[in-house]
Design a protein around this nucleic acid. Structure first.
Length: 882
DNA sequence: AGAATCACG
DNA sequence: ACGTACGTGATTCTG
């Protein structure tokens, strides 16, 4: 096989890698080391290796700041910003990674990576090798030659642009050698050498096409006619020659390595595995495990004992305080149970759910309030064991919930995530054991499976007290013990209960939608003069903006935007746009709400969503499989979907109770703004009263509906952490006008203004914001040097305490309502939660009681400086509960 | 897998 | 001057 030498500019690529992933916070290992550059470099490197399949590889590095170039020109690479510390700290690990890859790396005092590469490229080429050079720095294209191809990263790092002498001729009409002359004339702002004043790429190219080189140019300078350019060339002659010298990459650097030394040795899987563990690179870990079969799983110092049993005895349970139910798919309403496990950090028992739950001993252990247990995700376990009629009690530590409360930023999806954060590296990620995607499966080897589960149990057991102590430290023990933990049980029962959905009703709607969609498609094709996929934004863009020549209002990263606000602006100009808008809306209804929901109706005729209690950054719940928190309501066509949501029993109705303006009331409370509190105490219409203030109206009856609408938008904006631009977009008004609205608002509600300023200031000091119930959100981006990132964090600092406190309040109300339903032995059921709204199934004979009970509890869930108000409606379907 | 779009509070 | 509203999940297309 022919020899192929791959030369990589490590310094340049590592730097590019660093900037290609700027989401610094999510790329940290267990010791707080940033890993974004290492991760991204790894990805780039692998893709290059796969593509090139070289026989020889070398990664070259700059040795340091001082080189022969700085000796020639003191300011070479001067004026550069200091390397960010987040990057600096990753630099020592690149050699470790490369050693694990089996790839040589080299740096040389006084020289840059370029010169090492230049020298080896020459040597390789002379030896008849095919040479490939990869860098993020375009200067290296001067190395292109007969056997030398240069690849430069573009668009961050995702793609490579190839440079051969032919490409350079086509692009610049120059030879690779002339690239050096080009640099000499142009200079280089990032390397900080000057070239010739006022000469950029265009002028430099013109000159080189005429004269061929810097030397030739100055030979014939006298023949040039008098011009500013000529003057500059004469004045900067010295600089031009210096710059050319600086730009030239050395091809005879005194390197001490030979081509022999660059032979690719191949991956050392064990070293790589260790590196991935250290950096917490899960996906690479799994990938590696798939490729090789000789990797040893990490050793525990004192391995946990585990045993599969087919009978549960009291002795087994005697010292057991951790309970685990293993599943490998997310949706626990449908998931198959792989095993039930119980034990402690020393010994774990594993068995099937049938064996466990049929044991009297196990039943009473699970349901014994007095046995303080540790679990991971109480809600999931509650739903899973409910299949067997068991309801866990006495759970003290839910590691999942606790981790979420401690820091919403580090997403703890599985036990390994939190174990690794506490240096318990013996726990494997599920993906490592079970695989993922199409290859997801339980290992046949009971030893492997058993050890994996046992290690999880061990970690949970050890983590329990540690994590609770951390919560206590943050004053979050109450939040956990009296709100989130009991709520897990309430939510589990809501999920298990589910809500009845009329499948045939949905199917009827689906047929009608299909018919209308066909009509619209025909009409759209006719008006477009051709058939195309209306659902493809790309194809639609071509039709609208190229074929029909409609004006481009907004662009996205990838092309024309065809979002609703754009289409609405175009609608008056072209009737086709009306049809497209309607098509969009109906297609959404059909796919997401008719077909989508239908798939989730189980044999009991109900939909069982999952509330995710540990996801949002603010403390809200989210809902998935399916999402029942975004069922249409804003348009009549969409709202009809709600006709399909029914009470389970004929004699019952759907009752819906929602907080009125809860976020603004919370804002009034937290900010203690006099005027806003006053407005709410008077029971005023808050949007009208805001309108009166910002428009200077004295009598409520003089507020026009337009004013109220504007004021409402301003109120929303305030809650979101307002900006003039955002408001102007929302109201379709000028930015100046929007700014006036905001200024008026903040003058009138000066307490709100004060709060907004204080909350950001305090957050910058503390690093986090808090809700009324001590729920925290950390905002490291408040200190970002990037304006956008920082501004976003500031708006978040204003919004999170508001949105989060509102979420806290509804959670408190849910607990109280659940308590009342239980103690009063009512037949009414709490079915759904939609952020500020609760949905119940209520038997007719409990309706009166429930209406007042629910309102009463919700309104008095907490005591604020303003009253809380609840609106209730009921009907024979969710649609009619309005 | 990511982007674009759109449903909700 | 910088470019934006806050929080979610599902579907579809596309590289």
């Amino acid at each position: 096989m022919a020899e192929k030498l791959l030369l990589i500019d490590g310094s340049s690529l590592a730097f590019r890698a660093f900037y290609s992933i700027m989401n610094l916070e999510s790329f940290k290992n267990q010791n707080g080391l940033h890993t974004n550059a290492l991760f991204s470099f790894h990805r780039m490197f692998e893709s290059i290796m796969n593509k090139e399949q070289p026989s020889h590889v070398l990664v070259a590095y700059d040795a340091g700041k001082v080189t022969f170039r700085t000796a020639m020109y003191g300011d070479y690479k001067g004026g550069r910003k200091k390397t960010p510390s987040e990057f600096q700290e990753q630099m020592p690990y690149f050699p470790v990674l490369l050693d694990a890859f089996g790839v040589s790396h080299y740096k040389l005092a006084n020289y840059e990576a370029d010169d090492i590469i230049g020298t080896l490229a020459r040597m390789g080429s002379e030896a008849g090798y095919e040479v490939v050079v990869v860098s993020g720095d375009k200067d290296l294209i001067q190395l292109a030659g007969e056997n030398i191809r240069v690849e430069i990263t573009t668009k961050g790092v995702s793609e490579l642009a190839t440079y051969t002498p032919e490409v350079i001729r086509e692009k610049f009409n120059l030879t690779p050698e002339q690239i050096i002359d080009l640099k000499g004339l142009m200079g280089d702002s990032s390397d900080n050498y000057p070239g010739v004043t006022k000469v950029g790429e265009k002028t430099a190219l013109k000159l080189l096409h005429q004269y061929g080189s810097v030397e030739e140019l100055y030979e014939h300078i006298d023949e040039m006619k008098k011009s500013k350019l000529k003057e500059n060339l004469i004045n900067d002659k010295e600089s031009a020659f210096l710059s050319k010298t600086l730009a030239r990459i050395h091809q005879d650097a005194p390197i001490e390595i030979t081509l022999e030394d660059t032979i690719y040795r191949g991956k050392d899987t064990q070293l790589l595995m260790d590196f991935y563990k250290e950096m917490n690179f899960q996906s690479f870990q799994t990938e590696l495990l798939k490729q090789s079969d000789d990797i040893e799983l990490p050793e525990e110092e004192e391995p946990v004992e585990f045993v599969w049993v087919d009978e549960v005895t009291p002795e087994m349970l005697e010292k057991a305080t951790t309970l685990h139910v293993e599943t490998i798919t997310e949706n626990y309403h449908l998931a198959e149970i792989v095993a039930v496990a119980f034990g402690n950090e020393e010994k774990v028992y594993l068995t099937s759910p049938e064996i466990a739950t049929s044991s009297m001993w196990f039943q009473s252990w699970v349901e014994d309030e007095a046995v303080e247990k540790t679990v991971f995700d109480l809600k999931a376990i509650t739903v899973l064991l409910a299949r067997y009629g068991l309801r866990p009690k006495g759970v003290k530590y839910d590691i999942s919930l606790e981790s979420y409360l401690l820091d919403t930023n580090d997403s703890v999806k599985e036990i390994a995530d939190i174990a690794v954060k506490h240096q318990m590296n013996f726990v494997n990620y599920d993906e490592v054991i079970y695989g993922k995607g199409a290859k997801l499966k339980v290992p046949e080897d009971k030893e492997v499976l058993g050890r994996h589960i046992a290690q999880k149990v061990k970690a949970l057991q050890l983590l329990g007290p540690v994590i609770l102590a951390e919560l206590a430290n943050f004053d979050q023990k109450d939040l956990y013990e009296t709100m989130e933990l009991p709520l897990a049980d309430v939510l589990a029962r809501m999920e298990i209960e589910g809500i009845s959905v009329d499948k045939s009703r949905l199917e009827e709607m689906g047929l009608a939608l299909d018919e209308r969609l066909k009509e619209l498609e025909q009409s759209i094709y006719e008006q477009a003069g051709e058939e195309f996929n209306v659902k493809s934004p790309k194809q639609l863009g071509v039709i609208l903006f190229e074929k029909l020549n409609l004006p481009v209002i907004k662009k996205t990263k990838t092309g024309y935007s065809t979002a609703v606000d754009v289409l609405e602006k175009l609608a008056p100009q072209a009737p086709i746009v009306h049809d497209i808008l309607e098509h969009r809306q109906l297609a959404k209804l059909k796919s997401t709400y008719v077909d989508g929901l239908t798939q989730f109706i189980l044999a009991d005729g109900k939909i069982h969503t999952r509330y995710i209690q540990t996801l949002t950054q603010t403390g809200r719940l989210s809902s998935a499989d399916p999402n029942l928190q975004n069922i249409p309501i804003r348009t009549e066509e969409g709202r009809k979907i709600r006709y399909a949501f029914l009470p389970e029993n004929k004699d019952s109705v759907i009752l819906s109770s929602d907080y009125s303006q809860i976020e603004l009331r919370v804002l009034a409370h937290i900010s203690e703004d006099k005027h806003m509190i006053e407005a709410f105490k008077e029971g005023a219409d808050i949007h009208s009263s805001t309108a009166m203030r910002i428009f200077g109206i004295d009598h409520a009856e003089d507020v026009t509906s337009q004013m109220r609408r504007d004021a409402k938008a301003v109120n929303f904006g305030i809650v979101y952490g307002i900006s003039d631009y955002g408001l102007s977009q929302n109201l379709n008004i000028s930015r100046k006008q929007a700014k006036e609205f905001i200024d008026r608002y903040l003058t009138e509600y000066s307490g709100v203004k004060q709060f907004m300023e204080d909350v950001v200031k305090q957050a910058k000091l503390d690093g986090y914001v808090e809700t009324l119930f001590n729920r925290r959100r950390y905002l490291p981006d408040l200190h970002s040097s990037n304006f956008n990132v920082r501004s976003f964090a500031e708006r978040t600092a204003m919004n999170s305490p508001i949105q989060g406190s509102a979420a806290d309040i509804l959670k408190m109300a849910m607990l109280e309502i659940d308590h009342e339903l239980t103690t009063r032995q009512l037949k009414s059921k709490m079915l759904l939660q939609v952020h500020d709204e609760l949905i119940f199934e209520v038997p007719q004979d409990e309706l009166e009681l429930m209406q007042s009970l629910v309102s009463e509890v919700m309104e008095n869930a907490v005591s604020l400086h303003v009253p809380l108000k609840v609106d209730s409606n009921f009907g024979s379907s969710w649609y009619e509960a309005k």
